[in-house]
Design a protein around this nucleic acid. Structure first.
Lengths: 162, 162
DNA sequence: TAGTTGCCCATGGTATCCCATATCGAGATT
DNA sequence: AATCTCGATATGGGATACCATGGGCAACTA
C-alpha cells in the first residue's frame, strides 16, 4: 500500500457509496474508507451541514466550515445575506463526534431533514461526503439521470432545457 | 483584509441548535455544548441583546457589544437611527447568570420580545448564539433558506456558492 | 409574608465507552 | 475457479457517565 505513492492524492478523497444500518441507539458506522480519509486529513471532528435544496447532509472536516465562514466574511456583516449565511451554516450545521467504534449518532433534526430512519446511505463527493435516506437517494439519482438524458436527447448542443 | 490569527480554537464556536423546556420557575438549561464553549472562551458572564429585526435575543460574551457598536458606528451619529439603535440594544441588554446547574432564568421582557413561552430554541451563530421561540425560529429559518436558494439560482448549474 | 433568586440533590433519559459477536473481503491454497 | 483462512469491519448490548429537568430549602427583597 505504501509504495503506490501516486495514488495517495486519489485515496485522499471521499469516493463511492454504501448503506449502513442504524442500531437501536441511533448509531451508525461511518464506512471505514471514509474514516481513513478523515484521519489522513487530520480531522478530529466531523462537521455536518443541511443541504439547501435536497434532503441530505453534507459532511466533512472543519475546512468545510472554514470555507463557508470565509465566504461569509466577504459579505457586509450587517446585511441580510451575511446573516442568512451564518444562520444556515452555524444554525443548521452540527458537529458529529465519531465514537471509538467509528460510529456517529444521528440527531433528530438530521432525521427530519433527510427522512433517515433505519438506514443511512453514505455518498462520497470528493472533498466531503453526503448522507441520505437510501430511498430518496435512489429517487434523486433517477431524477438526475432523467434530466441528463432529456438534456442529451431533447436539446441542441449548448442549449439548456426548459 | 489580512487573515488574523485565530483567536479561538476551531471547535470553540456556537454551532447547531436544540430546544429545551422552561420549568415552573422560569429556568431553562443552556445546552451543555454551548456551556463548554462559553467556558473555553473564558466568558465569565453571558450578555443578551435584543436583535434589531427579528424576535430573538443575541447571547454571548462582552465582545458581543463590540459587534453592535460596530454596527451603530456605521450609522451617522447625527441621525436618529444611531440613537435608536443604541437605545434599543443597550437599553434592553441584560446579563444572564448561569446557575450551578447551567441554567438561565428568562426574564419577562425577553419573553415579550421573542414570544417565548414553554420552550426555548438555542441556535448557534459561531461567535454567539441566539434564543428563539421554536415556532418562530422554524418560520424564519425557512425564509432564510429560501433567500439563499434564490441566491444560488443565479449561479451556473453544478456550481456551489461556497 | 409572599414572591423571587440561587444552591443543592434526585431522577429519568440519553450518549459514550468497551467488549462480544456476526459479517465481509482479500489473498492464499487446492 | 472454488474454497479456505484470517484480519478488518459492521453491529449488538451491558455498564457507566453526563445532562436536562423537577422539586426542596435557605437567603434575600419588596
Amino acid at each position: 500500500m505504501q509504495r503506490r505513492k501516486r495514488l495517495w492524492r486519489v485515496m485522499d478523497r471521499f469516493l463511492s457509496n454504501s448503506v449502513n444500518r442504524i442500531d437501536a441507539k441511533g448509531r451508525v458506522s461511518v464506512p471505514a474508507h471514509f474514516r481513513s480519509v478523515v484521519q489522513k486529513r487530520g480531522y478530529t471532528e466531523l462537521y455536518a451541514l443541511r443541504c439547501l435544496d435536497v434532503p441530505a447532509m453534507d459532511v466533512g472536516g472543519l475546512d468545510l466550515l472554514d470555507r463557508y465562514e470565509e465566504r461569509i466574511a466577504q459579505e457586509d456583516p450587517f446585511l441580510q445575506t451575511a446573516d442568512d449565511m451564518s444562520f444556515f451554516c452555524h444554525g443548521d450545521g452540527t458537529f458529529l463526534k465519531l465514537d471509538q467504534g467509528g460510529r456517529i449518532t444521528v440527531p433528530d433534526f438530521i432525521r427530519e431533514h433527510t427522512g433517515i430512519g433505519a438506514e443511512v446511505a453514505f455518498v462520497g463527493r470528493g472533498q466531503f461526503f453526503q448522507i441520505w435516506e437510501p430511498g430518496r437517494l435512489a429517487a434523486y439519482g433517477a431524477e438526475a439521470r432523467a434530466r441528463l438524458l432529456k438534456l442529451r436527447q431533447g436539446t441542441k448542443p449548448g442549449e439548456r432545457p426548459e
